[in-house]
């Protein structure tokens, strides 16, 4: 293999890996296209053709290598990785790092990227639930019990989405748990209003990333990926709703 072919292979590999990481972690399509084109241009490719969809990427550059496909299989929300890819792309543009370093750091990104510690995520889930219950319903008495129920609901969501490979089951199960706990806490006299506790506690489960990205993708003209994400948001919202409705009907 000649040196230029090898270089072209590296450009394709780097751009495709960057694109896959960004889509996997919840970036909008326009940003992915923009970043991949910049990587190819900055690496010295004269032209590049891209086809980016929410389930896979197809990319070709001029030269002897053919077009390559990168499927996108899993989907999580880790906005830090998008920020890291963005930063690396900026560093590469001003030639602080070489293409080879860029590729290496992208390949190792999955193993070095760090989430917030688990206790902090628990605290965060509690602090989404409680304050929003107060903001929406002005019911200060139920603040603490909403924090607790929201935290337990989020633990259920976290564990199920980590160990069970069925999509939308986690939303459904944790909504059902939240409903049961809210009704139960009302029976024990800990909460004044079942409604307020449930409204606050489901807030950490709100599919914020798909909603926002769906709107942005449609506005940018990505008429396949935008509605696809909208369906994703709608189904998660429906799963939460069914979980709550099931509990309310039996109680």
């Amino acid at each position: 293999m000649s040196a230029s072919t090898e270089h072209d292979q590296l450009i394709l590999h780097t751009a495709l890996t960057a694109g896959r990481i960004m889509i996997e972690n919840g970036s909008e399509i326009e940003r992915v296209e923009d970043t991949m084109t910049r990587i190819a241009t900055n690496a010295g490719a004269q032209t590049s053709q891209l086809f980016v969809m929410i389930t896979g990427i197809l990319m070709a550059i001029n030269g002897e290598v053919g077009a390559q496909i990168q499927p996108v299989k899993r989907r999580t929300f880790d906005l830090e990785k998008i920020a890291v890819v963005n930063e690396l792309s900026r560093e590469f543009a001003v030639q602080q790092i070489t293409l080879q370093q860029f590729a290496d750091r992208l390949d190792h990104l999955d193993s070095v990227s760090k989430y917030f510690p688990f206790w902090l995520q628990l605290l965060a889930a509690a602090l989404v639930s409680g304050p929003l219950e107060v903001v929406f319903r002005h019911n200060l008495h139920d603040f603490w019990i909403t924090c607790f129920v929201g935290m337990v609901g989020w633990v259920v969501y976290y564990l199920i989405s980590k160990y069970v490979e069925i999509r939308f089951l986690a939303e459904f199960a944790s909504a059902a748990v939240i409903g049961l706990l809210a009704v139960w806490s009302h029976h024990l006299g800990l909460g004044n209003s079942v409604d307020d506790v449930i409204i606050g506690s489901v807030m950490p489960l709100v599919p914020g990333v798909p909603i926002t990205n769906s709107v942005r993708d449609i506005l940018a003209g990505n008429l396949v990926s935008g509605p696809a994400r909208g369906v994703e948001a709608l189904v998660s919202a429906a799963a939460i709703g069914f979980g709550i409705a099931m509990v309310l009907q039996f109680v």
Binding site: S27, E28, L79, A83, L132, G208, R216, G241, L248
Partner: peptide, 29 residues
Amino acid sequence: MPMILFNIPALVPLVPGGQAYEMIKNFAL
């Protein structure tokens, strides 16, 4: 930094959680 880091969390207080819940509750009942 990318824009979605700022607008996704900021959107959450505007989500119509109360109305969505009342809708589900009334359908269920």
